[in-house]
Amino acid sequence: MSENHRHNAPESDIALRVKAMEQLLTEKGIVDPAAIDLVVDYYETRVGPRNGARVVARAWSDPAYHERLMQDATAAIAELGFSGLQGEDMVVLENTPEVHNVVVCTLCSCYPWPVLGLPPTWYKSPPYRARIVREPRKVLAEFGMDVGDDVEVRVWDSSAELRYMVLPMRPEGTDGLSEDELAARVTRDGMIGVAPV
C-alpha cells in the first residue's frame, strides 16, 4: 500500500470515520497507535501465501511432517513459526488423484491468515461464496482448472471454528527439487483449491 499524501485532497468520509474511532480509542488508552502500526506492518509484509507454501513444501519433502500435518495441522504449522489470529484451528485437506478439495467461507470471509495472508477480493465476493457450492466444477473451470470427470470435488466451508487449507498434489517431475524450489511452485490459489500446482 502506498501512502498517498495528497495534501489538498480532503479525506473521504469513510477514512474520517476510521480516524475518529482510532483517535478516541487512543485517547481513552484502549489502543496504542504504535501497536496498530505493528499489526498493519505484519499483515502487509510478513504474512502471506509464502508461509503456506513452506508448509506444503515441507509436507511434500518430509513424510513424518506430512503425517503430523494431517493429524494436527495447527501444531504442525506452528512448528514452522506460523500461528496467530484466524490460524488457531487449522485443518489441512489433501488432494489425491481421486479427490479434489476447494475451500470457501459461505457466510463471510473466514480464511487462514497465518498461512495464506488476507483473502483475495474474489474469495470474499458473494458470487464465489454461492456458486462454488452450487456448481463447483463450473466455477473451477472458470478459474482455468479442469477437474477430471473421475475426480470427486469436495467443497469445504471455513468458519470461525475450523479453517481449511488445501495440500495440493506434488507436481510430477519434481523429485530432485529442494524444499525451497518446491515452495516456489506452490501458489495461493493452489492452497485454496481453485488452481492446480
Binding site: 500500500m1 477514512a15 489502543v31
Partner: peptide
Amino acid sequence: HEPWQARIFAL
C-alpha cells in the same frame, strides 16, 4: 487498497 482499510482491520 487504501490506508483506512488497513487501520480498521488492525484496530
